[in-house]
Design a binder for these strands. Structure first.
Lengths: 144, 144
DNA sequence: AAAATATAGTTGGTTTTGTAACTAACAAGG
DNA sequence: CCTTGTTAGTTACAAAACCAACTATATTTT
């Protein structure tokens, strides 16, 4: 009919990204959800605290690009699970430093290695150069 | 400390996929949300009906990989907006055929070309071969 | 044909998210 | 100081997603 008549949703990058994201995220949630009763945002906040050390909620927001209300709720949940502690700063009592407990640290280590294995498995069929292109493109698309 | 100590969330494909997906989906929603007051699921259902012709809700679920409850609600919303009609089948009255109205078809055409332009823009900085790799990888990852 | 099973789609109640308004603490200018 | 503005984080309410149970119709089994 028109020159567009066979344009396919599978040519639409946001759609492909969404499907790939859903599929892989759902597959990985067995580790943090089934294993530790965590939500996706909680696992991400935990990861950032484990990976980059004690920091403020604000830093987590910036690095992980998660909205502050989501971070706030995830922090409360992680605190209730005793995976992190908050401590007020003397200098500026608006800030609170977030720090993993030993228990939170051990969960982090477990999930980090699960994530690494999962990712290796996920990309097993791709060549090194394909992996590099994929990562580069995704980083670029996430920036916008 | 350990050989894993610098494993980064930016090396974790599901995380990258999620960020790229969120960023691009949010950017595109201006077209269907601001333009036509549609939700993401509604736009996808509309697209599938436009692209693959009249079909049952079940077919939309399968092709678009959207859960039937979400499809059911999207169909109701699209019906209220007069973008589609349902018709019962004689043979099996459990099925209802979903079909875009002329109005729905014109919205579809508009959004389809917006999507095409958007996608072209999105991938403008990548080479042809990078685009091919990206699409192939995403399709593969979405399959799992 | 009656009973059990399966399928298409809907509804209801709970969770989770999103948005905006809010509190509390600090900073800077007058 | 005291107003004005800014920043960190929380809360409230509305929108959306999730899950499980449900209705209605069709199919299979006995």
């Amino acid at each position: 009919m028109t020159i567009f008549s066979d344009y396919n949703l599978e040519d639409f990058t946001p759609y492909l990204l969404n499907m790939a994201s859903e599929t892989t995220s759902l597959a990985f949630q067995q580790y943090y959800k089934d294993g530790y009763g965590m939500l996706r945002t909680e696992w991400r906040v935990l990861f950032h605290l484990g990976r980059y050390g004690p920091q403020h909620a604000k830093d987590v927001c910036r690095r992980a690009r998660i909205h502050k209300t989501k971070v706030s709720r995830a922090v409360s949940a992680l605190e209730q699970k005793r995976y992190l502690r908050r401590s007020e700063e003397e200098r500026d009592r608006r800030h609170e430093l977030l720090k993993l407990t030993p228990s939170g640290t051990s969960v982090f280590k477990d999930l980090r290695s699960a994530a690494q294995r999962f990712d290796t498995e996920l990309l097993a069929d791709f060549t090194t150069s394909e992996r590099a292109v994929l990562q580069r493109c995704l980083l670029r698309l996430a920036e916008l």
